[in-house]
Design a protein around this nucleic acid. Sequence first.
DNA 1: CTAAAATGACTGACCAGTCAGTTTCCTCGA
DNA 2: TCGAGGAAACTGACTGGTCAGTCATTTTAG
Lengths: 207, 207
Amino acid sequence: MKAKSKEKRLALLQAALAVVTEKGYFATKVDDVARRAGVAKGTVYLYFKDKPAIYIGLVDWLLEQALAVTAQVIARSTSPRQTLDELFTTWSSGVMSNPGVLALLSMENMHQDNTLMKRFKKYVLPHIVELQDAVAGVMKQGIEQGEFRPADPRAAATMYLGAFRAELLAAANRPRTPRAVESVKELFLFGLLADGKGRETPTDKEH
Amino acid sequence: MKAKSKEKRLALLQAALAVVTEKGYFATKVDDVARRAGVAKGTVYLYFKDKPAIYIGLVDWLLEQALAVTAQVIARSTSPRQTLDELFTTWSSGVMSNPGVLALLSMENMHQDNTLMKRFKKYVLPHIVELQDAVAGVMKQGIEQGEFRPADPRAAATMYLGAFRAELLAAANRPRTPRAVESVKELFLFGLLADGKGRETPTDKEH
DNA sequence: CTAAAATGACTGACCAGTCAGTTTCCTCGA
DNA sequence: TCGAGGAAACTGACTGGTCAGTCATTTTAG
């Protein structure tokens, strides 16, 4: 099982990525992955314990990339606001460039299978939380620096990621207009309400 | 196939809802649905052509409810802003009360199977668009009435639904705090930026 | 020449969908 | 009121196809 090269494993992951984003996890046969990588089915099992392990390996790899890219954007940009802007663009042109990938990262999807779900919680979820934390960190910094309003950083992160996701999926149906992306970003920053509608009373929680 | 009662069909759908939201579509065996409804597997096939048909029937039924509830909220509430507020609450306490249901309605999930995907596009997607349109209508009205800023109603609807979804899923992991829900709503309305950060220049699209 | 790597035919488990047989329900004539 | 008979509803054992995972055999590399 612990076969020679890391490279071959990577090649298999790339093949898996291609097939799985195209057909989805459940419709993907191990043999499909093997063929796409140009090897026989047996070979796949030299590098991965079983089918779920391919999935876990794949998601792990993707999240690693996403985290690296995110850290890089955070490191080099000058303000939290700019960071958010760049994250949107960087993500959508890179790792998370299609709905297939998003599906891979969604827990409710993996809910479809028990083994998968267990391993997802154990191995993948922590990394997703890490990503959320990274974004929440940006929010926190922005708030502290006074660029953002006082708000719950986690809620803001959740919403930012949700908006990203929704936009990406919407774009999969209709052709993607840069305008729509801008609209979403802009709404996130400025909110929906017209000016003077009570922005100064964000504390009246109970109605 | 066209067996007697609508009621029995409904009972089967209810059973399917219970099992599918619990285990996911792919992990659900037709026999599970039958057992849950207290009938034999064969009976299921008197009411549904095949397994995908159960799924389609289920989602159709759910969306019908969601649309009805949404229309009702829109009809009785006094302002677009209040409508949005109530939609959030109504949805999460009713039809879309758990992540399992959300998974059922997500296209990327159904991407997992080809037959399912085809039928999803044909039968389900139009209803989802209808729901998005209903929300976009609220946005449009709010904008026209001056309660909301000029913005793309569709983008705003996409984002609103995305925020709802993200919050609901987040709540599935950590216990749901009313505070988090409020945070999300509030962020959606007011945006993240601190006051005086350029709200009056939403037209500088190119950076 | 040998060991590591790769192969792909094979097997066992699983399950959607079928259908011959059984039960339930209804109708109608005595 | 009863029950005979027929139809509609229901049943669940069975079948055919699919596929994850195995492993005896072959290929490659050193």
